[in-house]
Amino acid sequence: MEDSFDKTILELESRIEELKKLNMKPEVQFDSEISELEKKLKRTMKKTFSKLTPWQVVQVARHKNRPVLRDYIAMIFDEFIELHGDRCFGDDHGMIGGFAMIGKKRVILIGHQKGKTVEDQVKNNFGMASPDGYRKALRLMKLAEKYKLPVLSFIDTPGAYPGADAEARGQAEAIAKNLTEMAVLKTPIIVIVTGEGGSGGALGIGVGDAVLMLSNSIYSVISPEGCASILWRDGAKAPEAAAALKLTAPSLLELGVIDEIIQEPVGGAHRDYAATADAVKEALVRHTRRLQRYKIRKLVEKRYDKYARMGKL
């Protein structure tokens, strides 16, 4: 792989850390040097992150330290009662959900769970949900409808799981059913793309009244690598494909696919969990409040109109 675009930033960060460690000893003092470096770091970070290429955004969206759903649950929600199983076959760990409390609001939370440790990732299939996951999500959404709770849906997946068993149990049907049911679900749905919005696997829980996106997340019909290998016949052309696919938040906002961009702290969500979580929480609460004011019929009508306009010239 080529040099990472944030090489200078990483070097500065490790140098500052070193000096801070040395600073603990009484005989040496690096205060002024540290503050100089920190200023430089801030400048560099701001500059680098203000003009990321789409391919660089892809790297940030997939960063190994980027917060995953379990992190958001811990930071944003005051209570989470996880509910398990699709009542058909199994319990998918790549898609989780349950009752949750955000501030004083009770909601149904669903979302992809990527995992961070290797063990976790294997258990969760790297956030690639199976039909059982989509069916569990639908089951919980129907529960939300019954209890008149808003649905908060967190998207972070490379795509739906492409396995033989997933096909046998109807990956296509599971996603199709969700799209059809979500279009007319009689409760507000707030969707947030926090990392990777990978194609049908993302959309399978992605139809909503408000669709939000973290500023360094991506949402695409196909991975840049997949697109490059088909249309460029060369997987290494992924950076070109990433640009052509218009998969970054500002492009999606312009295309009318998303409703709002949630700004990440400078340097990306993985550099400041707390600030990211605050921004996400604020946006979720605000949109939930806004959407709960609508009469349900009106809300569903508006949702339909929004999707009916997608791609219309």
């Binding site: 799209l179 279009a183 007319v184 992605g206 695409s220 019909v221 218009k246 295309l255 339909y304 791609g311």
Partner: peptide
């Protein structure tokens, strides 16, 4: 999906299903 239309191609899945949902 049609890659050349990017995310808007993906959105056609939701759009067509919304139409089917109304028939249901």
């Amino acid at each position: 999906a049609r890659m050349h239309e990017g995310i808007l191609s993906l959105m056609q899945m939701a759009k067509t299903c919304a139409g089917i949902a109304q028939l249901h």
